[in-house]
């Protein structure tokens, strides 16, 4: 996929098209169905996600995935979220707009330039969260994407190698009780995470989450989930919601008071 041209704010802009118009109309229609909420101060106060743009490779293999995820976050949780991800190069000025970033790809990509690495490291150290969601080809990682991601993580956080996120981690209880991570593919039994100051700063899912989230503007799922079933797709969304809620609430659900006050139900 070709890289999109950028406007003066650094966000990618896409050419006008009938397909875009239709998508916009559907999104407006969907917004109208949302429960009425009083708003924050303005759009900048809403929770958005940065989709990292990088040269070489394919930075957006599942173009509709993040929008669909944020729509589900908006629909299912109290988070006041923006639906459209902000496409951002890993530069200080762009990374400083939101502490949540998402990086994907479906093939090998060249190593990031040093300024980009340092900007991302600063982003993470100041509290940012980066979700890595490689979209492997159906026949596996034939393009060397895994090695590119390994090099990328090693460069950004050389002192925090990725480790499996244990099943008892609060990430799996941030909103939904998730027994096991799944995406478009069943994948390994746990996520990988790099810890900084006691929190997961980089979370890597080798399950093609975006493949399960992606839905076209006519409401059709873009890819089949493997081994299959709508339960798997729902669980992929639940994991995605948890990822966003973890970035916002960190270890909130681990607090002792939640064990003291509550019993599993609905609420906070």
């Amino acid at each position: 996929m070709k890289e999109n041209p950028r406007n003066s704010d650094g966000a990618a802009s896409t050419p006008f098209s009938r397909r875009k118009l239709l998508a916009g109309g559907c999104a407006l229609g969907a917004l109208a169905l949302l429960p009425s909420r009083s708003l924050g101060v303005g759009p900048a106060s809403q929770v958005g996600v940065l989709q990292l743009v990088y040269p070489g490779g394919n930075w957006r293999p599942r173009p509709t995935a993040l929008r669909r995820l944020m729509w589900e976050v908006h629909k299912r949780t109290a988070v006041d979220s923006t639906l459209e991800p902000v496409e951002a190069k890993p530069e200080i000025g762009l990374l400083s707009t939101s502490p949540l970033a998402y990086l994907s790809g479906d093939r090998a990509f060249p190593d990031f330039e040093q300024p980009a690495i340092e900007a991302l490291r600063r982003f993470l150290k100041l509290g940012g969260t980066l979700i890595l969601d490689p979209a492997f080809a159906p026949d596996g990682d034939t393009g060397g994407l895994a090695r590119s991601l390994d090099r990328f993580v090693g460069a950004v956080l050389p002192d925090s190698p990725p480790k499996p996120v244990p099943a008892v981690h609060v990430l799996y209880r941030a909103f939904y009780a998730v027994e096991r991570p799944v995406g478009r593919v069943e994948g390994p039994p746990s996520l990988l995470g790099c810890e900084l100051d006691g929190r997961l700063a980089v979370i890597r899912a080798n399950h093609d989450l975006g493949g399960a989230w992606a839905r076209d503007n006519m409401g059709n799922w873009e890819l089949e989930v493997v081994p299959g079933g709508e339960r798997q797709r729902e669980n992929a969304f639940r994991l995605g919601v948890n990822l966003v809620l973890y970035a916002l609430c960190q270890g909130y659900k681990d607090e002792e008071t939640h064990r003291r006050f509550g019993r599993p139900a609905t609420g906070g």
Partner: peptide, 20 residues
């Protein structure tokens, strides 16, 4: 508040890890 009162009343509570 991770879930609004409206969401709680309309979306069900299957799979949630929330407390009242």
């Amino acid at each position: 508040i991770l879930r609004t009162a409206y969401q709680s009343s309309t979306l069900g509570s299957a799979g949630l890890a929330l407390i009242p």
